[in-house]
Nucleic acid binder design. Structure first.
Lengths: 155, 155
DNA sequence: ACGAAACCGTTGACATCTCATCTATCCCGC
DNA sequence: GCGGGATAGATGAGATGTCAACGGTTTCGT
């Protein structure tokens, strides 16, 4: 037994629609680019970046998952595939019999080393160059505000 | 034989990272919400919205695909699944022997009618409420600028 | 007319993501 | 030191997305 739903105002809807469309187009183009340029999936790329930059090429499994904010199941499948492709390896963890370290292989380093400059170039070309530094700052502030707001909200 | 890659400045990288993180978190939470609230996938939702709002419940297949900016293959699979679930139906097109109309079924209308208010509530709660109207306008302007820029760029 | 090219939509193979469930190990109180 | 709960991670099923190739139709130049 609800009241009429409260729809968005036309300004709110316009903002939402523009944002969604932009975001979808941009992410779509970038992932297709990564794939085409490097043969890696966008997921491979993200995981390798996090593993090599934030973990020095070696991280505990769940730490890696947290660092990219994925659930463990997703990461587990992903690591399995990346292992099959030789991008990462798995090492037992001496301290914790359940645990595992994920390690970037030389092939993994090579792949990310080749892919990263191309990726950055596309980010710059498609996104950064569209905006002034002031607009970028504004977008960052807005993004952080939304993130902070979401953290306070339940699911 | 390349020069050292031109990385992003720290301000640019900060903006990019914040945007990506926000976008991913927000979209992730919203799709899980749609799924949990209505049993529909986010894709089902988008397609039904476009079909009922912009097409009056009946659209040519490729027109539908264009209206949500999907490739035809993706839409074809999606429509196949939605057909199986009874959300849409397919009609032959008299004018064009290759073509097809996609039609929202009563069950489809019911599903979208129930899901939409909940979805809007979550959009409002997670996103709209985090920002002032001025910030929303700014974000819309920035999004449209990026979109316009991308349209001019090759793949 | 008629053949080629463009168009509409489908299909199959494969990669990926989610959810629920499972195993094994660790930790903690008693 | 033992039993129960938390933790680390893997796994299988099913839904989804991508890419490349395909089969009919239409269209259009000649």
């Amino acid at each position: 037994m609800n009241a009429t739903p409260r729809w968005l105002t036309s300004e709110q809807k316009a903002a939402w629609d523009s944002f969604i469309r932009m975001q979808e187009t941009l992410i779509g183009r970038l992932s297709r680019r990564i794939q085409a340029d490097s043969g890696m999936s966008a997921s491979d790329y993200i995981v390798l970046v996090s593993l090599t930059e934030r973990g020095g090429g070696r991280m505990r499994f769940l730490e890696l998952a947290k660092s990219v904010e994925w659930e463990k199941s997703r990461m587990s499948h992903q690591v399995g595939r990346m292992r099959k492709r030789g991008l990462v390896a798995r090492e037992e963890c001496p301290d914790d019999g359940r645990g595992a370290f994920i390690v970037a292989t030389p092939a993994g380093y090579r792949a990310i080393g080749e892919a990263a400059p191309l990726h950055v170039e596309h980010v710059r070309r498609l996104f950064i160059e569209a905006l002034t530094q002031e607009e970028l700052d504004t977008l960052a502030r807005i993004s952080n505000r939304v993130l902070a707001h979401m953290e306070k909200q339940p699911d």
